[in-house]
Amino acid sequence: MLKIILIDDHQLFLYGVSQILPLHIPNLEIFGCCSVSKAQQIIAEHGDVDLILVDLDMPDVGGLAFLSKNFQSGDVHPVAVLSASQDINIIQQVLQIGSLGFIPKTLGSADLVNAVQSILDGHIFVPADIKQQIDAIPEEDEQAFADITPRQLEVLALLSQGLSNCKIAESMFISEHTVKSHVKQLFQKLEADNRLACVTKAKDLGLLR
């Protein structure tokens, strides 16, 4: 029996996907969760989960934070993103962190099923149009992504929202000391001497919206 955890706070979407996938993928059991915390409880109970599908915009814990925590833990689970985001930089971050794919919520039911099945079959799924946009990122922006780690990109995204080090630490499940270290490295890599300058430079490089 295949097991998929679907994390999304939109109840209608959660219900719809939970109904569609088992109709087309044999021997599939779906665990629908409206929060990351609920999903973590299920993960603890079902360690043999085959795939976790998570929305980026969750009310309790951000999807990027969940991805980072998963891939930096000792017990890594297969995770892909199912999101309405159109931000190519966010999608780039998602794939760099280690996501097995990016599935737009705009896909029709047949394409959604094919995307999930492709990931279950061991492939990385990215729609062709999104892959073209990623491939078209200027070389200097690619270098910026290479120099800054996925973890630092996540800190950068939270910095741009005006969050304090304390709030960033809470969101990312790390210590405030670690956040300060990341911020310091971001300042150095982006040649900035304060948070505003750091965020402004990141936007100029295309690292942020």
Rank of each mutant, 00 (worst) to 15 (best):
G47W: 09
D48L: 08
D48Y: 04
D48I: 02
V49R: 09
D50I: 02
D50F: 04
D50P: 04
L51Y: 10
I52S: 04
I52R: 03
L53Y: 09
L53W: 04
V54D: 02
D55C: 11
L56C: 08
D57I: 13
D57P: 10
D57N: 15
M58G: 10
M58F: 02
P59V: 06
P59Q: 07
P59H: 08
D60M: 11
V61E: 12
V61Q: 13
V61D: 06
V61A: 12
V61S: 11
V61G: 11
G62W: 06
G62R: 07
G62M: 13
G63M: 03
G63A: 07
G63K: 01
G63P: 04
G63Q: 03
G63I: 03
L64E: 11
L64G: 09
L64Q: 03
A65G: 12
A65Q: 01
A65W: 00
F66N: 07
F66L: 15
F66H: 07
F66K: 02
F66Q: 11
F66Y: 07
L67N: 07
S68N: 15
K69T: 13
K69N: 13
K69G: 12
K69P: 07
N70I: 05
N70A: 06
F71K: 11
F71E: 07
Q72A: 14
Q72E: 15
Q72F: 12
S73A: 15
V76S: 04
V76A: 12
H77V: 13
H77A: 13
H77T: 13
V79Y: 02
V79N: 04
V79A: 09
A80M: 08
A80N: 05
V81R: 06
V81S: 07
V81K: 05
L82V: 05
L82C: 10
S83L: 11
S83H: 05
S83W: 09
S83Q: 00
A84S: 15
A84I: 05
A84K: 13
A84D: 08
A84Y: 08
A84C: 10
S85W: 06
Q86D: 14
Q86V: 10
Q86L: 10
D87E: 06
I88G: 02
N89P: 00
N89E: 15
N89V: 14
N89S: 15
I90M: 13
I90V: 15
I91G: 00
Q92Y: 08
Q92T: 11
Q93D: 14
Q93Y: 13
V94R: 00
V94N: 00
V94L: 08
V94C: 01
L95M: 08
L95W: 03
Q96N: 10
Q96R: 08
Q96K: 03
Q96P: 00
Q96D: 15
